[in-house]
Computed example of a mutant assay.
Amino acid sequence: MAYDEGLAELMRRDLDDLFDLKEVRMFGGICFMHHGNMLCGVHKTGALYRVGKEHHSKALMLDGVEEMTMTGRSMGGLVDVSLDAIGDDELRCELLALALDFTGSLPAK
């Protein structure tokens, strides 16, 4: 398994009130799709949130949040949250709010 199942369960609880949510294996972990759009996910070294370019700078100012990179490239609009930081309920709540604001502006797929 490439991701921490306990972390995935923590994120599932955060997302429990959302409808039209689907789990998809992606990036060696699990991504949570809301209305068909990637919202957030877990991977072996932490979590990611799709906050969009509009909220990217704000998210990066939070402790434990960095730019999401894959194969050395920055993934615009996605942020990476360290394993140490992801246990912070307030941080997850703030990042989820930013991600929901962004993905809520996208058409459902």
Rank of each mutant, 00 (worst) to 15 (best):
V42I: 12
D88G: 13
A99K: 00
E94Y: 06
E54K: 12
K58D: 15
R25D: 10
D101Q: 12
M26W: 08
G64V: 02
T45N: 15
M26S: 04
L48D: 00
F27M: 14
S57M: 11
I86F: 03
G52M: 08
G41N: 08
D80G: 02
L48A: 00
E23D: 07
L78F: 15
K22M: 05
C93E: 11
A59P: 10
E90H: 09
T69M: 11
D16I: 11
D14S: 01
G76D: 13
T69D: 04
L10M: 12
L106K: 12
M11K: 11
P107Y: 12
E5W: 05
T45L: 15
G6P: 07
R50V: 07
S82A: 04
A47C: 13
D17M: 04
D4V: 07
F32L: 08
I86E: 00
R13H: 06
G36N: 09
D4Q: 13
L78T: 05
R13N: 09
G77M: 10
H56L: 13
M1N: 02
T69Q: 12
K44Q: 13
N37L: 08
A97Y: 01
D88T: 15
L106V: 10
L21I: 07
G29R: 00
M68S: 07
F102P: 04
E5V: 13
E67M: 09
E66F: 12
S82N: 03
G104F: 05
L39F: 06
K44D: 15
D89K: 14
L83N: 09
D14E: 09
L98C: 08
L7G: 02
C40L: 01
M70R: 15
S82Q: 01
K22T: 07
L91N: 03
L91Q: 04
G77L: 10
L21C: 01
C31N: 05
V51C: 06
G77W: 06
R12S: 09
A108W: 09
M61Y: 07
R50K: 14
M68G: 01
H34P: 01
F32A: 08
V79D: 06
G29P: 02
D16W: 11
K58H: 15
G64R: 06
G76Q: 15
V81G: 01
Y49H: 03
T45F: 14
G28P: 12
F102I: 05
R13F: 03
S74V: 13
S57T: 12
E54V: 15
A47L: 07
C40M: 02
G104R: 01
R13W: 01
G6H: 13
R92M: 00
M11H: 14
M26I: 08
R12F: 03
C31L: 09
L60D: 09
L98H: 04
M11Q: 11
F19E: 13
D84E: 14
E90Y: 03
G76E: 15
M1Q: 09
D101M: 01
L39P: 02
L15K: 06
H34L: 06
S82E: 00
R73P: 07
R50Y: 03
K58C: 14
L21F: 02
G41A: 07
L10Q: 11
I86H: 00
L60M: 10
G87H: 14
M75W: 15
D101R: 10
M1W: 02
E67D: 08
I30S: 02
M68N: 03
A8H: 07
F19H: 15
H35V: 07
S57G: 11
L95V: 00
M38Q: 09
A97I: 02
V65T: 01
R50S: 05
C31R: 00
H56Y: 11
